[in-house]
């Protein structure tokens, strides 16, 4: 939907700056990023604990603290995402981009293949984008939005095992465990979900910085200030 090339001088795509990401979207982005960082590190340490501590058990609470940070970050991650879903409904059009793929639009597919060609250096000229290009949108949808939902579902399902049967988490998420098979399996897939998300983060940060340096519009500052700035006046 945003893959259109601007057609005239008054087209918004020709403006030098457009307000794209509203405050709740930006705030969520950073909460999401930092809570994921905390979750990934603590989650890895829960699966592969640090070297054993000596002394009395009553002197330490290392694993307990690591788990506590994991759970607090998980609440930030999950509640942040819930608010973000709400904002997708009431926010501007760019707030909705990561929640669906307009696969029924031929222009979206055209844009997708155009972007793939661009990143394979087959095409030199980059389209001007207000929001996400179709390739970025697909990556966001599959590797971030869906994985986020998966991580929240499996995460709270595992959390429910500690809270106990018939707890709120068990009633809301407990069904995930028999769906995947067993508790150990849910742990494993939850672990793999972290790696998929980390893979996304690596590509995402690279793409954002790359776009900022050699692309046609601002990218890193956009997710801080919300304004998309263009480096040229051409369509």
């Amino acid at each position: 939907m945003n893959s259109k090339v601007a057609s005239g001088p008054h087209d918004p795509a020709n403006q030098r700056a457009v307000y794209v990401f509203e405050a709740p979207v930006r705030l969520w982005h950073w909460l999401h990023a930092f809570s994921f960082a905390a979750l990934a590190v603590t989650g890895y340490l829960i699966a592969n604990p640090l070297p054993s501590l000596a002394g009395e058990a009553s002197d330490h609470f290392l694993m307990g603290d690591i788990r506590l940070i994991h759970f607090i970050s998980a609440y930030v991650f999950a509640i942040g995402f819930a608010v973000r879903v709400y904002w997708a409904l009431v926010g501007n059009r760019y707030a909705r981009e990561i929640f669906y793929l307009p696969f029924w639009r031929p222009s979206w597919w055209k844009g997708l293949f155009y972007e793939i060609g661009f990143y394979l250096f087959l095409t030199r000229r980059q389209h001007k984008m207000l929001g996400h290009n179709p390739l970025a949108q697909a990556a966001m949808f599959f590797l971030n939005t869906l994985v986020t939902i998966f991580m929240i579902g499996t995460g709270f399902a595992l959390y429910s095992e500690g809270l106990g049967i018939d707890s709120w988490a068990d009633r809301m998420f407990g069904w995930v465990i028999p769906l995947i098979g067993d508790s150990e399996g849910v742990h494993d897939w939850h672990n793999l979900g972290m790696w998929v998300m980390l893979t996304f983060v690596i590509i995402h940060i690279y793409m954002a910085v790359r776009a900022d340096i050699i692309g046609r519009e601002s990218s890193v500052s956009t997710i801080i200030g919300g304004w998309r700035m263009f480096k040229d006046d051409q369509p």
Binding site: A47, N48, E184, D188, W189, N191, W195, T199, I202
Partner: peptide
């Protein structure tokens, strides 16, 4: 402590191994 991903018993790799390769390749 980290066991094999159970995909009908076919995958003999842990999440850390599969994920490490994925993130490394990225």
């Amino acid at each position: 402590s980290v066991t094999n991903l159970n995909v009908t018993g076919q995958v003999e790799a842990t999440a850390d191994k599969v994920g490490g390769i994925l993130a490394g390749a990225a």
